[in-house]
Structure formats: C-alpha cells, structure tokens
Design a protein around this nucleic acid. Structure first.
Lengths: 225, 225, 225, 225
DNA sequence: GATGAATGAGGGTTCATTCAT
DNA sequence: TATGAATGAACCCTCATTCAT
C-alpha cells in the first residue's frame, strides 16, 4: 500500500502481492466466521450461541476469533444487517411491468428463492423478531419506505380493479408470511407438520403453489391450471 | 402457613384438608412457574432463558423452583407439549359441517384466536422449529395423524370440485403459515414491516382478511364483499 | 419473621434465631471479603487486583464471591466510599477549642492514627488519585464543603494573627500531604528512602515530630522543646 | 524506508551511515515507547497497563514493540530506574553553599520543578511504593547513601543551632512528602480536596509557599514575608 | 417446605508473548 | 524490520443445580 504509488506496474511488487494474499486470507477467514456465525445464531439465537461454537465451526480458537471480530453482539448485528440489506433489494416490486400477476409472480419467486438459498440468515431475522425485535429498529428505516411504496402500488391496482379489493398492508404481510415460512421451517419440520415424512419437496413445485395461492387470493385466477 | 388463620381446629379432617390445600397451593405455584417460563422461553429460547429469571418472574427463589421442576429442560419440554396438545385440539376440522367455507372459516378463526391469546406459547414452538425441531419429534405423533386426516378431507373437497385443485399438504401449510405469523410477529414488528407505525390492528379485521384471503385462494369467493 | 408478630417472646423462635445466625455469618463473610479486597486493591489497584485473589484471600471460591458482591467495581467503589466517609469525620476541626495549636494538634494526631491503623484503605484512595480520580468525583461532595470550612477557620486565625499568614488552602494541603505520607509509604519503604534500614519508627515519635513540624511552620513554636 | 529519499547514492559510506541513522531511528522509537509507557504505567500501574495501549500510544504495532523491549516488566523496571537515577541527582544538597536556608530553598525548588515537569514518572514511583516497593530494593542502593549524607548535614546544622533541633531523618521525609505530593496529586484532584474548583495553581506560588512552610518549620523565619 | 450457601463448568473477552513471512 | 496471525492463560462474571439447615 505504502508503495503502490511508487512503482505501480514496473516492479512486480513484493509486499503488495503479499498483502493482497494476506487480504484474501483474511477475507476467507472472515467468510468462514460469518458462515459459522450464521449457522450458530440461526440455531440458538444471540444469547444461546456461544463464541466457542462459532470459533470451532470456523476452525479457529476462541481467542483467534477476536482477532477478526470485536464482539459477539457486533458480529450478530452485522449479520442482521446483511439480511435487511439483501431484502432491501428483494423487497421491491419489479418496475418493468404493470401487470399485477407478473409483478407478484416475480416478487414471490425471488423471495422464495432467497428463502431456499439462505434459510439460515432468514431464521436469524425471525429469531430476532421473536425476541421483540429491539435490534431491528436500529437497522430498519429503508425497508420501511419500500414497504409503503408497495402498499401504494397494491392499492393502485385495487382501485383500477386489477386485483381484489382488500387491506393492502395485510396482503403484503400475508405474502411475507407465506414466503418467510419456507425459510424458517426446515424441510424436516414441514414434513412433520403435514404428517408425512420424507417427501420430495420440489422447490419449483412450492414456488408455483405459493404463487397460485396468492394470485387466486387476489382474484387473479391462474391460467396454468 | 398462609392458611393457619382460616380453620385452625373446626374441621377434624386435618391431614386431608391440609393436603388438599397444599395441592391447590402447589398447583397455583406451578401455574406461576409455567407462565413465567413461557414468558422467558418465548423471549430468549431454551438456552437463553435462565432459571434465575424464571424464578424471579414467578416470585420464587431459584432453589425453591427446583421443588417444582426437575430441570430447566424438563420444564421447557412440558411447555412444548402444552402447545402441541392445545393444537391437537385446534388443528381439527369441525366435523359438524360439510361446507368447506364454513369448516375453513372456523378453523382459521380458532387458530388466529389462539395466536392472539397465547402468542408466547406459539413463539416457543416457532423457536423450537427454528432450532431444528429436535425436541418436537418426541412429542409429535398425534398431531401428525390429525394433519393426515385434514389433508384427506381437503383432497376429498377437491375431488368433488368444492375447492380449487391444488396440493392439499401445501394448502394446509399455507394456512398454518398465515395464522402462525400473527402469533410470532408482535404488533410492533408487524408495523415496522409494513412501514407504518402504531396502527390499530383490529383482531376481527385480521381474522376476516385472513379468512377471505384463504377462501379466495381456494376458489371460494367470499359473499361478504 | 413471618411469625414474629404472633409470639414475640413466649416462643424462643426458631427461624428468627437461625436467621440471626445466618446474618452474622453473612456479616462475617462480608467482613472477610472487604478486608481481602482492601488488601488486594491497595496492592494492585482496581484494574490490577483480580477477583480470584480477593476470593482466595477471603477463603471463598471465585463464584462464591459473587454471591456477596455484585461486581468488582462495586466492591471497589464501596471501599472507596468507606475511606471518604471515615475522613468526613476525621477531616474536621475540633469545635471544642479555639486555640489553633490545640486544634491542629488534635487534627494531626487523628489523621496520623488513622494512617497507622488503616494504611491499606488510605492507599486505595491514593491509588485512585494517581489514576486521575475519576471515581472520586462521584463520592466527594461532603468532604469538599468540610475543606472549605477549615480553610475559613484557618484564615480567621491568620487575620487574628494567631498563626502565620499564608495560603490557607495550601496549608491544609501540606498537612494532608504530611499525614497521608505515613499511610502510603510502608515503614520499610520509608526506611529505604531515608537510607537507614530497620529503624524503630515509634508512632508517638512520628506524631510529635509531624505536629511540631506543622506548628512551627505555622509560626507556633512548640513548648515541649 | 523512511530515509530512502534522503541520500540514495551520494554518500559512499553506506553501511555506516545507515547504521547511524538506524540507531537514531531506534533511539527515537525507544523514546516514544518510554514516554508512552510512562503515561500508561502512571495511570494504571504495572499490572493494569497493557502492552496494547503502550504500543498504540507509541504508534507501533504490538508485535513491533517487542523488537524494542524484552517484556512489559523489563520496560517497567527500566522506567523505575530512570526516576531513581534522576533523583540520585536531585536528591543532593547543593555543596556550593553552607547556608541552610539557601540549600533547602534550592533543594525544594528542584524537587518541585521535577514534580511539575515529570509528574507521571513520579507517580510510577509512588505506585510502586504503594505496592510494597518490592522492585525498589533492587535499584535503590545509591540513593540510600545520598540520603544518609543529607541526614548528616542536617544534623550538623542542628548541632550548630542553625536550624531547629528535630529528627533529621523525619525532616527529610517531610520535605519529601510535601514535594512528592505535588507530583502525585493532579491539579484537578487538589482542587477537589480544597473544595474550590478550577483555581489558578501558580507553580511559583506553590514553590514559595512550600519553601516558607519548610523553612519556618525548621525555625528559619522567611525574610520575604 | 423454604432459604442461603456452595460448586464446577462455561461464557465472553483481553492479554502478553511468539512466530512466520 | 515490520506485520498479521497464533496461542494459552487469565480475567470477570453467570449459570444450572445441589445441599444443609
């Protein structure tokens, strides 16, 4: 770094390379820590997860862990922020279409895919919510206005009679509940609840079922059936 | 002790009465403990909740607590069983009617009322699920067959074309997700998510919105609208 | 306790006695802890002293210690307050006399006796001062007004030409420095400083020397010489 | 590195120059470390101060620090020795005069100036003394004989009736206590003690007051008054 | 049955120091 | 020489549970 200005390209700079490598190492370790933390926090929550377990899962000693993080709480909060940031992107209605069915279809699909791919992060969020959501308020803000936006669009469609008249805020919440469910509840648990073990829960199948469920609920009979 | 003033000598049946009263006292204390435990476990989970806080919330000393419970885990498990038992009753389709709309309406109403009245117990269940549900398997069984039952009834309705054709197991799950949501997510958090603070979330309003949502999703247009 | 109203004296009450004994036990243990803490804090300061050592010195396990105290800092602060309270009493000019020599003589004697008897407590104070005295401000207040009082009395004497004219605040401070010295510096260290080991530092001798030193400094030639 | 721009090739005497410079650099860093250590040790003591804070205050990494010191204790001891060496010089009666007043005046002035200029070093000494002074014995020796010397001179004056008759060793100690006080006790703390906040504690004023105090105590009425 | 006390394990975090590069 | 990383001990404190009275 100190030398990067001196010889930018002529000298295949030693220390810069080394630092680069070190940075990569560090990033890799940080990634390990984050994923270990996601696993542990998602299973046990902030209080219940131990830095011990997180360290072990990341192949570090407990004291090594503190070389990379400043505190358990800080680590937790940063993960929480990750979900919220991810969602700030997903929680958006596609502006490229005006058709309610299309917009909702895309929205639900995205939300579910995220749930399938990162169920653990999602669960950290839910756990936080169960605990009262004290930490959420700090990092919310942006998502809030996004929700307001969507509510208005839904209300617009209702006024144009494009979808069934209903409480738009609750509609949004229902979609949220349906999709979030597939992150929070493990395949195994879902199987238990429906009472039939070891089913082939095909993701595409779920996506289409949820989508049709919502569209029908909005008074948009699906053409696929 | 508390009773020494009541009937010191009138009743000759000493031991029986005293035992009776002791039993009542004991039950009252157990109830305190359970409700304290529900509060703490619902907020912090099994690992996160401390016997200390539970005892304090129940107006007991920590050592007194152990006269009534055998361990923190046992207490936790017994609460978990409570929810499951409660649900074994609620998770039943009313046999007195054959009309899908009526049956679903009742079912949803019951489930939501339970969510509104005992959100904390519900949350303990969700927390357990988030943790992988290891303990659930032990106490499931009965609920499982009940679910199977309902799935069959739903499929019957579909075959008779009384409700839209769809994956009955997922339908059941969607209803579950929608209703459970209102137990797990506090009013305050729901407000945050929809982005509008301090709304008057009328319970009847929610019940009717959820019901209409599901009925429409099942292809049963509501007549109330 | 619950029964103390019922039979105040007829019944040699069991639980009351037991509680009394328990209280004594507890007081004895607290005294052990305090004296252990005084020793450790006086040697190593707040940061440097470990709860481990304090516990060991008080014949307790580390976790037992926390049954009696709420935190290391709280224990430390309570000791600090002790000194200040003690001093609030000592740091007072005897009102029963108007003679400067007598008043100063008594004052110095008291201060030195305290230094000889509780040097460790005194040292905790000095250590705190060395660290900047952040905690002192919280518990000061009363001593402050007492100092102001004394300053005024000294100035009164000066105006009446009973003692030499000088900066009264500094005079007070000098007395303070001289007396405090005998608490802070161990006999052994004092010997080192004056360069002669193992002297018979007779307390009465010191008291009279310090007193004469101050009286002479105030322009009050001692009659004893 | 920092010097690579200075004289890259002009001077043929490469290694010698570089070594010279390196030495200077090293000395500069050592000075930084020492002053950082003085600050930290003076605030928190040996146990309480962390190599971390020392390194940071010296603008070094913690591991870099160990190129210059062998251990925290060694660093501490070397500082302690510094004070003692400084004092071996100051703790000396000026031989150019025979007049007690002049000698004492000079002595007190020097001691106080040192206290005002290097209060932190002084405090490290006091802290060590409070802890029992174990480390002091190792590095004492020379100061000891110097004290003995002074005691004899004081006793000489007493025998010649040039100053009041008193315990010479204690007289020396009193002077020491008075002067040391102004190093150990911060202006802020002194203000607290006298009960009047934010006063202009003029150094010259203090020097003259302390001097007069001692001279009067020795039976040498000051002429300045 | 109730209470204060005991206990050993564990949890989060910091520290002094060393090592490899 | 400088730097990030490693390490094991220590530190403050809390916990679940048991015991004696």
């Amino acid at each position: 770094m100190k030398f990067s200005a001196a010889s930018p390209s002529s000298n295949p700079n030693h220390s810069a390379t080394r630092q680069n490598r070190a940075q990569k190492e560090r990033d890799a370790i940080m990634a390990d820590i984050r994923s270990a933390a996601i696993a542990e926090f998602s299973l046990h929550g902030l209080k219940g997860a131990s830095t011990q377990s997180i360290a072990k899962r990341a192949n570090l000693k407990q004291s090594q862990l503190y070389y990379y993080i400043s505190s358990k709480e800080a680590l937790y909060e940063s993960l929480l922020q990750s979900v919220l940031q991810d969602w700030a992107v997903l929680f958006v209605f596609d502006a490229s279409s005006d058709d309610p069915a299309t917009v909702l279809r895309t929205y639900i699909r995205r939300k579910l895919l995220y749930a399938f791919q990162k169920p653990e992060l999602s669960r950290i969020f839910t756990r936080e919510v169960l605990g009262g959501g004290a930490l959420l308020e700090k990092h919310w803000t942006e998502a809030s206005s996004s929700a307001q936006h969507k509510v208005e669009q839904l209300e617009g469609w209702m006024n144009e009679c494009l979808i069934r008249m209903m409480d738009a805020r609750l509609l949004l919440m229902h979609i949220w509940a349906l999709t979030q469910h597939y992150a929070d509840f493990d395949i195994q648990v879902r199987a238990m609840i429906t009472g039939i073990g070891g089913l082939p829960y095909d993701e595409d199948h779920i996506i289409s079922e949820v989508t049709n469920f919502v569209l029908n609920a909005c008074g948009l009979p699906d053409l696929s059936a």
